[in-house]
Computed example of a mutant assay.
Amino acid sequence: MQISEKLDYEQPSKYIVSETEYLNNKEFTPVLTANKAFILGYTDEPFNIYDKGECIILDDFTLDCKLVNFAFKVKSSAIKILTSKNNIILRYVYEYLNFLNLETTEHKRHYISEIEPMLIAYPDSNESVISFCDLMDKFDKKIENENKYLQSLLSQKQYLLSNMFI
């Protein structure tokens, strides 16, 4: 099946933040981008917040994507907001898109012309999809824990170096 049969997309125009100065207060609404920065900052704008549930945000120019399950606003109209069609499990499609390592050298919009028509193998049984997604969650948690451990070791090393060379 084509991705267009699995996902709906929404233009983000009404969710674009009007302020370009972002706050550092996590109590406010995050402003997202699909690239490595992901959360650019926070806004106190109380209107036009995307709060419809889980979605994939895809940068139509760079093809970077993120799975999001919290309310947010976006920085630009280059983002496509992708949601599940026919109760498919969105995490599976997100992992599939990441697996493809989508890259581009052209500065143009790609989703409708290139991504939507792509074929995706989606299992008939949601049980296997759920098992796969549970496994991906465990890997993500392990990676997160290992990254925290790495940061702790780097901090300890820096402490030792700074005390050694004083």
Rank of each mutant, 00 (worst) to 15 (best):
Met1Gly: 10
Met1Asn: 11
Met1Asp: 13
Gln2Cys: 02
Ile3Gly: 11
Ser4Ile: 05
Glu5Arg: 10
Asp8Phe: 12
Pro12Gln: 10
Ser13Phe: 14
Ile16Gly: 05
Thr20Glu: 14
Glu21Met: 11
Asn24Trp: 01
Lys26Asp: 03
Thr29Lys: 05
Thr29Gly: 04
Thr29Leu: 05
Val31Glu: 03
Thr33Glu: 12
Asn35Met: 00
Asn35Val: 00
Lys36Pro: 00
Lys36Ala: 11
Ala37Thr: 14
Asp44Leu: 02
Asp44Ser: 12
Pro46Ser: 06
Pro46Leu: 06
Phe47Leu: 02
Lys52Val: 03
Glu54Asp: 09
Asp60Arg: 02
Leu63Ser: 01
Leu63Phe: 07
Asp64Gln: 10
Lys66Thr: 01
Leu67Ser: 03
Leu67Pro: 03
Phe70Cys: 04
Ala71Gly: 09
Lys75Pro: 01
Ser77Gly: 15
Thr83Val: 03
Lys85Glu: 08
Asn86Arg: 09
Ile89Asn: 14
Arg91Pro: 11
Arg91Gly: 06
Val93His: 05
Leu100Glu: 02
Asn101Pro: 00
Leu102Tyr: 09
Thr104Tyr: 15
Thr105Lys: 09
Glu106Cys: 03
Arg109Gly: 08
His110Gly: 02
His110Arg: 05
Met118Val: 05
Ile120Thr: 03
Ile120Gly: 07
Ile120Val: 10
Ala121Leu: 12
Pro123Cys: 04
Asp124Gly: 09
Asn126Arg: 11
Ser128Cys: 09
Ile130Ala: 09
Asp134Ile: 02
Leu135Asp: 03
Met136Ala: 09
Lys138Ser: 12
Lys138Asp: 13
Asp140Leu: 10
Lys141Asn: 14
Lys142Leu: 15
Ile143Lys: 11
Asn145Val: 06
Lys148Glu: 15
Tyr149His: 09
Leu150Phe: 08
Gln151Ala: 13
Leu153Val: 08
Leu153Tyr: 13
Asn163Ser: 05
Met164Asn: 04
Phe165Ser: 03
